[in-house]
Write a protein that binds this DNA or RNA. Structure first.
Lengths: 157, 157
DNA sequence: ACTTTCCCTAGTAATCCGATAGGAAAACTA
DNA sequence: TAGTTTTCCTATCGGATTACTAGGGAAAGT
């Protein structure tokens, strides 16, 4: 037995947290990488690389020099958590490295493909609907809250 | 940018396919590892290790020698896909290696915890409900089918 | 100029992934 | 009892990935 499962990597987690810090700062103010790193307890050189990805992905804009730093490229209401994860870490869900639609199964495993598709659809339902603004304001949509409030969702196995 | 995201490993995929092959064979007949490997195109020595995990996890029973092989330990209707993945690959969903309930966030990231919980709950809704019997018979529950039939679920990003 | 801050390339230690090899132990066959 | 079959165990492997670190160059501001 291994200890992986479907994992959200440190990269993805850090990327979302950094983006949340930017969302909370508002779209005028810009934050320096070092400040974000300190606020969220992220290794700052590692974070710099992640912020570079967010910039190349068009989610963030940067300025260097004295009053430089990073800020969101668009409104926090228009950036889904899924957008951040995809830009920092690649496709949301993959099976054996490839995305579900490219898979092919045979025999009794044939219905596995629609199953993985359903998993991905359900992940998207959460991460594609919830925006940085939602999380930063601690106001998750009702659908999501009702998922998270179910006590059974917090039990471990 | 990386190329991971939330991945279902080869181990997990292989484990489910092997279990499906056993489910399709019925609870009387037992299949040899080599036969399963050939049917599903899985490296047989790799599969042997996975079948060992399924046995230690109590999902499968084995017999050695002449008419030996593997068969399911319980009815295929009572084994969820999530059970197979957990036994072969560890916790269904984890963030940075730890399971959501053990995380703690601060500042604007505080609502990230309920968000990951919601993701996990939605993954469980699919993988915890669907059984080996469902997939092997190609008869997914209606809830799942309606997720998988949405054309938008098949589009890539 | 000079400082600040982003930006880029490279490196690294540890871990994991997917796979392979060889044989010991058990069960069946005859 | 001898011999075959199949599971079971341990050990190893190259290569990729993860999570970081180091060092410096390029731009922007003062």
């Amino acid at each position: 037995m291994n200890n992986r499962g479907m994992r959200i990597s440190a990269r993805a987690d850090y990327a979302v947290r950094a983006a949340l810090e930017l969302a909370a700062a508002g779209s005028e103010a810009s934050l320096k990488a070092e400040a974000i790193a300190a606020a969220q307890g992220i290794p700052h050189k590692f974070l710099e690389g992640i912020l570079g990805d967010l910039r190349r992905g068009g989610l963030v804009v940067s300025r260097r020099g004295g009053q430089g730093g990073y800020r969101l490229a668009r409104a926090a209401e228009s950036i889904a958590i899924a957008d951040v994860i995809r830009v920092a870490d690649g496709p949301l869900v993959s099976v054996r490295g490839v995305r579900p639609p490219e898979l092919s199964y045979c025999g009794p495993a044939e219905s596995l493909l629609p199953l993985w598709i359903a998993v991905r659809a359900n992940v998207r339902k959460v991460l594609g609907e919830v925006t940085l603004a939602h999380v930063a304001a601690a106001k998750l949509p009702d659908e999501i809250l009702s998922l998270a409030e179910d006590p059974e969702a917090w039990t471990n196995p």
